[in-house]
Amino acid sequence: MASPLSQEFVREFTRTQRPLYLFILAQVGDAIRAEEILQDTNVVLLSKHQQFREGTNFLAWARQVATFEVLQSRQRQRRDKLRFSEEFVTAVANDAAEESDLAELRRKALQECLQALKADDRELIQRRYQPGSSGKELAEDLGRPANSVYQSLSRIRRSLLDCVERRVAQDTV
């Protein structure tokens, strides 16, 4: 029988989910696989929760576990199914880690930027990211050519990216 999780652990664990997911995603480039690896990581984190010492950096610890899980997952994957090369994964891991530290900051900025979007654009991007939705389904729902919907999404993402960048820059100055 596992010992109960401490309050502190639950709080840290919860807070870490998003940055951890983003950290993994940048290395595998695939939302579904990133979710799978996150789950594997979570299993390890939960089973080793007693190793966690309060006051230490939970996210750093979790990232170590995740890095290992990314590797494991790559080894399980057939070679030809691998998206990215070893070199690529190693190269982005550092940036992915640094960026995941800023996840909360970026989340807030993104909230504001989403509010600043034109209503139409906001609705479009929200419908796209509704759980279970996809660009293709969205295009069918809207009755617009798929290509044009993709282009719109692409444009909105670009402006969100720029907007988040600006807000974060302002906040940190």
């Binding site: 919860t14 807070r15 989910q17 998003r18 997911y21 983003l22 995603l25 940048a26 480039g29 939302a31 990133a34 982005v92 940036d95 992915a96 960026e99 995941s100 996840a103 970026r106 989340r107 993104l110 909230q111 989403l114 906001r122 991007i125 929200q126 796209r128 990211y129 509704q130 759980p131 993402r157 969100l160 990216l161 988040v164 960048e165």
Partner: peptide
């Protein structure tokens, strides 16, 4: 850096349904 930011923006949007949900 741009790649990581781009893909993580996608991740952020996916994570909480473009601000509609709060998974935490």
């Amino acid at each position: 850096r741009l790649y990581v930011r781009g893909i993580q923006l996608h991740g952020q949007l996916a994570w909480d349904a473009a601000g509609l949900g709060d998974r935490e």
